[in-house]
């Protein structure tokens, strides 16, 4: 018996347009991701960097930064810790690849089910996020490849800007993804929002 497709925490969300009609809406999507938490062991900075480079083509990003390599991205989350993400694929799981790459260098915790990523894009994305996000996301301060963790609507959120549209990938605990999305759709409602 092969494993079934996992159920996405936001599987029940109504797709389509929400909020104000007319005009170009904000876009919300739920990219299918594998996510692992990589936690470096003491004194393994250069070895972890080398391993991340060779296995994923990524130079480990520093504080507040994210970096993308060959088919995977790394987001710095705390000293010596990164979230490694990759589109869900058919080959070996990201967790298995990371376990192998970082064996003896870093602990690896699979969070593919524990974290849920919601992508928000559109010119009004910053204004919508400002309804709950205390971070200054102005282009002069924040931008593509920047990431930060902050509470939004009482829910811990990892905010990662992926492009200058702007597009923000918002990663939250999976069991709080539903109330988080509820907040996001309310915040985006004045601009109209298309859920894909």
């Amino acid at each position: 018996m092969s494993a079934p497709e996992p159920t996405h925490p936001l599987a029940a969300v109504v797709r389509g347009r929400h909020g104000a009609t007319g005009g170009e809406p904000l876009r919300v999507s739920f990219p299918a991701r594998e996510i692992v938490q990589v936690m470096m062991r003491r004194g393994q900075d250069s070895a972890v960097a080398a391993a991340m480079r060779s296995a994923f083509g990524i130079d480990p990003p520093g504080p507040g930064q994210a970096a993308t390599g060959s088919g995977a991205s790394a987001i710095w989350v705390q000293p010596g810790q990164w979230l490694l993400t990759a589109p869900r694929g058919t080959q070996a799981t990201l967790a298995a690849r990371a376990e192998q790459a970082f064996a003896g260098l870093a602990a690896v915790a699979d969070q593919s089910h524990g974290r849920t990523t919601i992508a928000l894009s559109g010119p009004a994305a910053r204004d919508a996020l400002a309804r709950g996000c205390r971070l200054d996301l102005h282009p002069s301060v924040f931008g593509p490849s920047r990431a930060a963790q902050t509470p939004i609507a009482q829910i811990g959120c990892l905010v990662h800007q992926t492009d200058a549209t702007p597009c923000f990938e918002l990663t939250v605990f999976s069991t709080l993804a539903e109330p988080f999305l509820h907040w996001l759709l309310e915040a985006a409602a004045p601009y109209g929002v298309q859920v894909a």
Binding site: Q37, M39, M40, R41, Q81, A106, A107, A109, D110, Q111, S112, H113, G114, R115, F173, S174, T175, L176
Partner: peptide, 10 residues
């Protein structure tokens, strides 16, 4: 190292 995996595992 510590990782909260409360949400990873049901």
């Amino acid at each position: 190292s510590l990782a909260s995996v409360t949400d990873q595992w049901a």
